[in-house]
Design a protein around this nucleic acid. Structure first.
Lengths: 228, 228
DNA sequence: TGTACATCAGTGAACGCGCGTTCACTGATGTAC
DNA sequence: TGTACATCAGTGAACGCGCGTTCACTGATGTAC
């Protein structure tokens, strides 16, 4: 019987993660439970322990997978665009950001939304995928700066004392200027705010159209930060 | 004994809410439980039912209180500023927004962050306080527009189909133009993104200084939307 | 002033529930001879 | 080819826990006579 099931379910760890995503999508990240996953897959909860020694290990894997998926979408958005067409690159990157969030709101919530109570992400495991996911944006800004077209006068400096964390960032993300990194973070904050409100369903009560508002915002960003 | 306790605790409903806020601050909104509240107050859980017939009623009250506190902070920020000094009004409103969020991150999370799983806010109860809390910003933008100084060319129109919800908004927030409302929402999205990342502790890993970044953003908003 | 009674805030036991995790087990498969 | 054995993914019972909610109750207070 157990063998029979294994034949049907060729890849149980993947099925466990898929069920976890379904649950997070349906009930929210804090409703994730091993027993609910087991119920979905018609197995018993202890079976999951063969693949994920603790519940938190599963969550960590989900976060890493989400960052990877998000990072892939970001980098994919840049292929087939002229590397010197800064306006278009930044715009398409922004659109890809929102599209990924709309496609996988549960993943977006898990990596950028409110953390699961009681869960602490192990930084050294999650950081590489997290940094890579945002490196597309940082790279575009850095290219812009190197081309002498980054318009950000009087931009606030990086806080003293955080040089070490920046060093960590750089070790994953390659060479990057402090200013480019800061501008990228600000842009990230802007799109994050819009996206979070849209996937949280907070815009409709105000009659706002997510797509239109978002495109407007991307154009604002372009106008503000790209020279000429 | 029970009477003795009531003498000590002059206002149990208020104490219950205060304990709830403490719990939300410490463990997150989804960790809120009647039993944990009762434990903090050295009473038994059923005692809470005398004041809040269901757990969700308590949550609703907390949300309304938070919106009210937030709304007060917003409106207070505008007193003692020249009504025609649009730049300063918008800037101070923005600073008050962030300051309130930093002072009461748990309240901010509850009303603007990820919703509590399984809880659905009764709109007719929450809407008045919610609308009032954002009406300060909408009012400033509307004043700006009426003075002929709102700079928002080609701003995306309100989505057709949401006119009704806008009507509801207007019924609480007074006369307001669609454009003013839309611009206010976009500004709200921007500050929301920054504030959420800051109180979520997501900025330090990137070496970003919340205060400086936020002020920069407020100035960007002023430059973009206020003419002359 | 004294007594009988109504009120009602808070108690403590109990309900059924779902959770993470442990444990000894089973039984199909693969392997060594 | 046949047999004995090791492996190991998955089972099912059990643990202790915290939760929301119910229920009959208690006992101090306020009130009517």
């Amino acid at each position: 019987m157990s063998r029979l099931k294994r034949a049907q379910k060729s890849n149980l760890p993947e099925e466990i993660k898929a069920a976890a995503w379904r649950l997070i999508a349906a009930e929210g990240a804090s409703a994730l439970s091993l027993r609910a996953i087991a119920r979905q897959l018609h197995i018993t909860a202890p079976a999951i322990y063969n693949y994920f020694p603790r519940r938190d290990d599963l969550v960590t894997q989900l976060i890493i997978d989400a960052f990877t998926s998000f990072g892939n979408a970001q980098h994919a958005a840049l292929t087939s665009i002229d590397p010197q067409d800064h306006v278009e690159r930044l715009f398409q990157l922004g659109q890809a950001y929102r599209q990924w969030a709309l496609d996988y709101p549960e993943r977006y919530q898990l990596i950028f939304g409110t953390p699961i109570p009681g869960y602490v992400a192990p930084r050294e495991q999650v950081m590489p995928a997290g940094v890579r996911s945002l490196s597309a944006l940082v790279g575009v800004i850095e290219t812009l700066r190197l081309a002498g077209k980054l318009n950000a006068p009087d931009f606030p400096k990086i806080t003293p004392g955080f040089e070490e964390t920046i060093a960590v960032w750089k070790s994953f993300g390659g060479q990057v200027d402090d200013l480019s990194l800061s501008v990228a973070i600000l842009i990230w904050c802007r799109v994050h705010g819009l996206v979070l409100l849209e996937i949280g369903g907070s815009l409709p009560p105000f009659g706002a159209d997510g797509a239109a508002l978002y495109s407007y915002e991307l154009n604002s960003i372009n106008k503000q930060f790209i020279q000429e």
